[in-house]
Design a protein around this nucleic acid. Structure first.
Lengths: 350, 350
DNA sequence: CTGTTAGCGCATTCAT
DNA sequence: ATGAATGCGCTAACAG
């Protein structure tokens, strides 16, 4: 353990008082050019590094922000986090991260952990435990930014317009003649799922239709869940003719189910997914996708937080809504004339 | 800003001295049951939360560890990080993360940032800047764990056996009759790339062969890089008959290049990739892959670090090597009899 | 402009 | 077993 060099030693080496050294280093208050030069030189010579812990102790600001998402390994979050980290770094902030795994209890534990560490701000992604009671208490400690999540009270945050995204995608399928469109999305208790269901329903409603409730599968997002859900859907006598795969790992489960049941897109069933992944682009057929700019989400979150950090007085309640785009590819087509089973036979016989 | 309750107030409420309160809370030293009870109750009543910053100040330990990888958004790292975070959390540690983007300068900046924050330990993933000079200096501050990376000096860490992985994969293709096997892997200056090239060469050597150096493309790993590299490789008169895609985002680039040039796997060219991704599993044909247990990597890293945190005296230099597995799927076959161009014509004519 | 002083909240030493 | 005092490294307030 090399002895850390403190500001005290720098001051002594520079031949000034400790207070002057501090001011020189931080360019704060009135300091002579001469003092600045001497202190700077001494600091460099000694290899002085300010101790952030001591600074935090004094200034009551740690320069650390905490970020909580349900799963760090989710590629969508991973990209958002990268953007957040990048933007925050330019402002000198470090990023503490953790996964809640959609567990409200765990989320609380993690928030407490972060609070004890005295993070300057908090970014909270969707978690089953919507609007926990301790949230107001939290806001007293520093800015809390919602990431695609709804809070009661002051819910500043960045949100994706899943409502219009789902509306547009559903409408698109409806236009192709589909009326039995399956909607697979993560937990309806989370904002993304809730909004998507609303958009989906409204698209139907605008046609004077009402979707079969059985077609809405909005619980977990695990891939094998999507697989078994899709399989059971496909096995039904009134199987869907289209799949809206609105969750990160849902597409692969549905594709497996299609393969497993001998269905082909877009002839037998149409497929729409989210996120412009390798799989969407390279699968045959390429998958029509609902996308949004993940980097923009991350940057917006970071900038909103930074702004609140500068002016802790919560100005207006700021909500940023980002739109989705639909990338048309090859996985959707008009609803099949003959039922899938019939077509399969035809194909096999030829 | 709700006034934070400090240990001083807890002590007063419990009717004991501040020192006693501290000992009671931490169960350290000699304290009466009675004092413990009183202090615990007071703490609960007042909603006392210890201030981690002040604790760090005093104990010189922050309970925070830093982790640096080239890119947080890389799905492989994302999964490793999740495992690290999970294991670390059970030990009460928080995780600070950042991306180096393979920039040595940025890595240094980030390490300094983390050092100033007085992280208790550091986990360093591969970065162009191998073995920076400041690393020894670093080790004085706390344990530094390598993640698939080589250091000079004390290089404790966990590593993936890319050498044998590449050896096995190359051998497999050699056995299928391929002699022109393209190797695409991220920068050879990084351990993974270096090891893979060694394994690849040795597989050839064991056959008494020597690979065409032009077949080794070991620079950046960006997807469009892989795409253009693969395209140029395929355009050559002596095009490879097999592709080893040993980098996260390389597979998709190569698959696009194949599609673009009208080649089909496994008939025209064989393909091996890494990481058991959705794309590998669902692409047609499913891609034969070289995989390893990412969760195990993360857990091992965390546990190694935790161990060094407990006994700062660097016991033996601990290196953990994790093996790879090869998942055989449909993307590889014997080398085509006729050149691809000829086959294309044949197919078109039929 | 600069030196001195006083804590930030806590763990720990030394008395008692 | 407990109370009082000390200081971790730094910044902010004050006095010069």
């Amino acid at each position: 353990m090399k002895a850390k060099v403190t500001i005290r030693e720098v001051a002594k080496a520079a031949g000034v008082a400790i207070g002057t050294a501090s001011r020189a280093l931080n360019r704060t208050g009135r300091v002579s050019e001469q003092a600045i030069a001497a202190v700077t030189k001494a600091a460099r010579d000694l290899g002085y590094t300010p101790d952030a812990v001591a600074q935090s102790m004094r200034t009551r600001s740690t320069g650390v922000v905490g970020l909580l998402v349900s799963d760090l390994a989710n590629p969508l979050y991973a990209r958002i986090i990268t953007a957040v980290e990048s933007r925050l770094l330019t402002a000198g902030y470090a990023l503490l991260v953790a996964s809640t795994h959609n567990d409200g209890q765990r989320e609380k534990t993690l928030i407490d952990l972060f609070r004890r560490r005295r993070v300057d701000g908090l970014i909270l992604g969707p978690c089953q435990a919507e609007t926990p009671a301790y949230l107001d208490q939290l806001a007293a400690d520093g800015p809390v930014i919602a990431l695609d999540r709804d809070f009661q009270g002051d819910n500043a945050g960045v949100h994706v317009d899943h409502y219009h995204g789902a509306l547009q995608a559903t409408r698109y399928l409806l236009n192709l003649g589909h009326t039995r469109i399956a909607l697979l999305t993560p937990a309806s208790v989370l904002r993304p799922g809730r909004e998507r269901i609303l958009g989906y329903r409204d698209a139907y409603a605008q046609r004077g239709l009402q979707p079969d409730p059985k077609l809405i599968r909005a619980e977990k997002s695990a891939m094998d869940f999507a697989f078994s859900e899709a399989l059971s859907l496909l096995g039904s006598p009134t199987a869907p003719t289209a799949f809206l795969c609105l969750g990160t790992r849902i597409l692969s489960g549905v594709l497996q189910a299609l393969r497993h049941s001998g269905r082909l897109a877009p002839d037998d069933v149409s497929v729409v997914s989210i996120g412009d992944t390798d799989l969407s682009q390279l699968f045959s057929p390429a998958i029509t996708s609902l996308t949004w700019d993940l980097e923009a989400v991350g940057t917006a979150v970071a900038e909103l937080l930074l702004r609140r950090l500068d002016s802790p007085a919560p100005l207006e309640q700021e909500r940023i809504l980002l739109t989705t785009q639909m990338v048309l590819r090859e996985s959707c087509g008009p609803v099949a004339k003959a039922p899938a089973a019939a077509r399969k036979k035809t194909r096999a016989a030829s």
